[in-house]
């Protein structure tokens, strides 16, 4: 079992490493300009000079995929960051406040969970307007509710333990107890959920961008790259297939590594 898992870890790590490197230094991977095309080189299938082919304006698809890595991954990471931060704060407040405030906050969280998450994201996008940052924020907001629940549950669990009571008896301030005792103990489950959410966020950001609510047209984003290839489904398969495969590979890599990390921390 462990052998099989390790077998998957190496390719997953490589995919993730390549995607991150492409996001940080796209010029390293593809010297071609992702925005400027050569109209004599339109709709060329994948080949030696253009590994992923070219699109209807003669732009190199590989360059566009590589340059699309930064906005796509950034959006996913920002989304998870927003979700972890907002969710943790809400959960911490609810868990430590107890009583009426706790009840009120958790009811509000329940409402957010009752609205299908993709609709909630689209509502936020409708309010904020399209754009990469807006999409990231929307995905983060919709995922925050789950994090607040996990955080609250952990706070309530840790709060009842002996060492927290002991610290309180010793006269440690509430804020100090929260930061030094409660937070580190609650971090594990939240981190586990965050890895799970990152894979989701990659896919959701791509889906919202596919619908056309991401960065405006010339900018390459993984989801909008797939959308841009739709008119050429019958004639130029690579325009949709290749960027889609990249999204799937990254999502799979993140999910697999997250799964391995989670099972390892559970068995320890």
């Amino acid at each position: 079992m462990t052998f099989v898992r390790r077998l998957g870890v190496v390719p997953s790590a490589l995919v993730l490493l390549a995607a991150t490197a492409a996001a940080l230094a796209p010029a390293l991977f593809s010297p071609a300009d992702p925005l400027r095309g050569d109209l004599t080189q339109r709709l060329l299938p994948p080949g030696a000079t253009h590994p992923f082919g070219t699109d209807e304006l003669g732009r190199d698809v590989f360059a566009r995929v590589v340059h699309g890595s930064a906005p796509s991954l950034q959006a996913a990471v920002i989304a998870v960051g927003v979700a972890v931060l907002a969710g943790s704060v809400i959960g911490l407040v609810a868990g430590t406040a107890r009583g009426r405030l706790d009840g009120l906050v958790m009811r509000a969280v329940e409402v957010l969970l009752a609205v299908p998450s993709f609709l909630l994201i689209l509502v936020v996008v409708a309010v904020l307007g399209p754009g990469t940052r807006e999409v990231a924020l929307a995905v983060g907001v919709s995922a925050a509710a789950v994090f607040s629940r996990v955080m609250r549950a952990e706070v309530v669990r840790v709060r009842g333990s002996g060492y927290v009571e002991a610290a309180a008896v010793c006269g440690t301030g509430r804020a100090t107890v929260l930061l030094t005792h409660v937070l580190p103990n609650a971090a594990g489950p939240v981190a586990a959920l965050a890895t799970l959410e990152l894979g989701n966020a990659v896919l959701t950001v791509a889906a919202v961008s596919f619908l056309g609510f991401g960065a405006p047209p010339p900018a390459p984003e993984w989801g909008s790259l797939v959308a841009a290839g739709r008119p050429f489904l019958a004639s130029a398969w690579w325009l949709t297939t290749v960027p889609g495969l990249v999204i799937a590979a990254v999502a799979l890599a993140v999910n697999h590594l997250g799964h391995v990390l989670r099972t390892r921390s559970e068995t320890r």
Binding site: G199, L203, A206, A207, F210, G223, V226, A227, R230, L233, A234, W237, T240, T241, G244, I247, A248, A251, L252, N255
Partner: peptide, 14 residues
């Protein structure tokens, strides 16, 4: 679950 739904639809269509 790691395959983007929109892409799966396009591949099936193709």
């Amino acid at each position: 679950l790691s395959v983007p739904t929109f892409w799966l639809g396009l591949v099936l269509l193709q």
